[in-house]
Design a protein around this nucleic acid. Sequence first.
DNA 1: CTGAAAGCGCTTACAG
DNA 2: CTGAAAGCGCTTACAG
Lengths: 352, 352
Amino acid sequence: MTNIDDVARLAGVSTATVSRALRGLPTVSAATRRRVLAAAEQLQYAVSPNASRLAGGRTATVAVVVPRITRWFFGTVVEAVEDTLHESGYDLLLYNLDGRERTRQRVLRTANLHKRVDAVMLVATPLRPAELTELAALGLPGVTISSGSRVPGWPCVRIDDVAAGGTATRHLLDLGHRRIAHICGDPHDELAHTTHLDRRRGYQEALRAAGIVPDPGLDVESQFTIDGGNRATTELLARGEPPTAIFAACDEMAMGAVRALREAGLRVPQDVSVIGIDDHDLAGVLGLSTIAQPAAEQGRLAAQILLNPLGGRELSPQAGRIPDPGDDPGAAPVILPTRLVVRESTAPPRAH
Amino acid sequence: MTNIDDVARLAGVSTATVSRALRGLPTVSAATRRRVLAAAEQLQYAVSPNASRLAGGRTATVAVVVPRITRWFFGTVVEAVEDTLHESGYDLLLYNLDGRERTRQRVLRTANLHKRVDAVMLVATPLRPAELTELAALGLPGVTISSGSRVPGWPCVRIDDVAAGGTATRHLLDLGHRRIAHICGDPHDELAHTTHLDRRRGYQEALRAAGIVPDPGLDVESQFTIDGGNRATTELLARGEPPTAIFAACDEMAMGAVRALREAGLRVPQDVSVIGIDDHDLAGVLGLSTIAQPAAEQGRLAAQILLNPLGGRELSPQAGRIPDPGDDPGAAPVILPTRLVVRESTAPPRAH
DNA sequence: CTGAAAGCGCTTACAG
DNA sequence: CTGAAAGCGCTTACAG
């Protein structure tokens, strides 16, 4: 395996010069650079990332933590992040929590991040207080996406979940619905995941603004999955007179709701309207009305914020800051817009 | 940042002994090991991966290459692979091709894999002859999943695509269908992706076995996506009398087909039956009949095959072999079983 | 079972 | 603009 000495010998320069020429540092004459590049090319030389990182003190790697890579939002975010990072020469170390305590520890414990990555991206990952302390103590730059814990000094990219919940609910109100149910959230989430709380708040505020008192009997908690939506809807129907519309906290739950309604012999939207949040890949196929959120853009923007401070080639301990003027740690999150997409799953309630 | 010298000093041993004790090598006395572990714990010591890899010559990292992480099959495979690798202390470097030439080069060129990973996993990735040569020249162990190129000496985990296509088609034949269309494949795929060819072969063989001559007019090529299925079906309907059933090469295409049929005013399954391959997360929601394939199992098994040879802690140049007796490079692929899942999208054709 | 020493392949002040 | 030398933080023969 050819190393830097081989290249230096062939080019007739020192290894220091090879290192500089290959990294494009300005302090190398054009002629020398040409010779070095030619030698490297001829020898098929590839720099050893480990040696480079050890000597240089930078890992050129970012840890990306997601709850479940197979869910639409997280897969889409990771794809955009991966693209942006690789573009700048950074590697992406993927941590898929998948509800396993062991994985949480692997990722979040000092020992594992230590010396291994230059920065951390947390996607919708709520941390326990102790974990948060540990992470902050590392002094790494980082960024968070969507809900979950804020880390002191780390910027955050997200949508306004309260507004999204409000828009979805108002769409149903505008169609004439009054009995609007909400399915959402994970009741057993010890980790204070705030997404479902925010979206519910948007729902309740929209109802109140329309003069409707939110009915707890029309509000069912479950999980952010197809199955969760299915179960919540089944439970809802078991409680008595069905609502004329359901606002599901995400498209995957909405899909489960559609399924449950159909199995109960109710038609969508003739008997019950359904709206979700996301604009999942399959929302179009299913004709699902939804509040579209820009998942890829959130990933891309968060990655850029991470890379920006030092020209996209380096990360310093100060890297975790939004490059805008007026920026400071703990600054307000960067909010990306959402958009109502009306398809076939929502319609006015039947006249009775 | 505390290093191995700090630990050695505190424990009163050499750095060599610290290294051995921490890695659990057997040549350390119990008492010494205890002291070292205590010292490491007390100092919150974490080994530097880069230094360890540079000195040890192993990267403890596997490159995983997928066409698109956001597609169901690939996301599910990666999730299982990640779990298995992390379990054994390996990192996963994700490469998401996403049709971009640049990314192909990043991954596949010697320069990038060189010194960076211990092994490579190719998921349904077809390689050009030159790329194949380059990859083989690296002498790395590896494994392939699903279709795509076989690399000499690398084992392969997959399903039998011909059989899957046959089973899907026979299900439709058994229901009484005779005019069975097929939508599949990417006509512009210069990379000889064989999945669609195999599944089509299963389709054609099943038809012939039933005494039916495959009709090219009922066979439309498109892409392995929802949109592809949508377009292929629209094209199919434009050709004249619709088939009574459609076999789509994957569930995402089948979903697109269902959508296109519905938009054309045709009911599924009353007017046209639809079956896919995969058992996508949403196949149940959509009531889609399909041939289920074990995506997570393929990922898990492939990762285990990669890790197995040296007890899951190391990889050698010989690591890319199936650990079974009778094993040799170029051996037959490990075939995992598929299973017909009948839901609501397939039914007997209407009597005319 | 343990240690001293060399070495992995780079990058970075420092000096010129 | 370029080079000699030290150093990054480990692991691995080698010797005992």
